[in-house]
């Protein structure tokens, strides 16, 4: 028969399929959606204060020459509580940190700050996640490293772990 090779086509397709399966079993899916808005200027926004006694946040304030962190958090987010000590450590290391509180009520933010400390210079209230969406952020907590010109340089998804703290300090130092 002339077209004998055709009979091996199903086997070959199966082989490709199994290749994909093996690849996936060896490299488990990365379910985090990284922001693509990296090395781009901070989107324009002007957020009101999230709670009394702490200033709100404007995007223009983020380009004052000092590299900094913008922490996207929420009082109702349980992992954010676990992140508080690391943010305190960063602040102690001299890193300026601004916060964006997602879908939060002023009294809840105040309670959160009382309980877990306030490392933030300013906290903007993002009531409808619009700044979060403009940043390409897909959850809380997330932290963005901003250089002195207000350009987003890196996104950290999830809780900042204790051993990441010196690394972040060094990176911000390098942006100066």
């Amino acid at each position: 028969m002339k077209n004998r090779w055709v009979l091996f086509v199903p086997l070959a397709i199966m082989g490709l399929l199994f290749g994909a399966f093996i690849y996936r079993l060896m490299t488990p899916p990365d379910t985090l959606i990284q922001s693509q808005w990296i090395d781009k200027p901070m989107p324009l926004f002007d957020l009101p204060p999230a709670t009394a006694g702490v200033a709100g946040l404007k995007s223009s304030q983020l380009a004052d020459g000092r590299p900094r962190l913008v922490n996207v958090f929420a009082s109702w987010c349980i992992p954010c509580r676990a992140e508080a000590p690391q943010l305190e450590a960063l602040k102690a290391a001299g890193v300026p940190i601004d916060g964006i509180a997602i879908r939060d009520r002023p009294e809840d933010v105040a309670m959160f700050l009382r309980e877990y400390g306030n490392p933030f210079d300013r906290i903007g209230a993002d009531m409808q996640s619009s700044v979060q969406i403009a940043l390409g952020s897909s959850g809380v907590p997330e932290t963005f490293l901003i250089d002195g010109k207000g350009i987003i340089r890196e996104q950290i998804q999830g809780v900042i772990l204790a051993d990441q703290v010196p690394e972040i300090v060094a990176k911000l130092e390098a942006m100066k």
């Binding site: 379910t31 985090l32 109702w76 959850g139 998804q157 999830g158 809780v159």
Partner: peptide
């Protein structure tokens, strides 16, 4: 693997 804190980042 994503760490545990990441996988429960947001209420589902």
């Amino acid at each position: 693997m994503s760490g545990l804190p990441n996988s429960i980042r947001f209420p589902a």
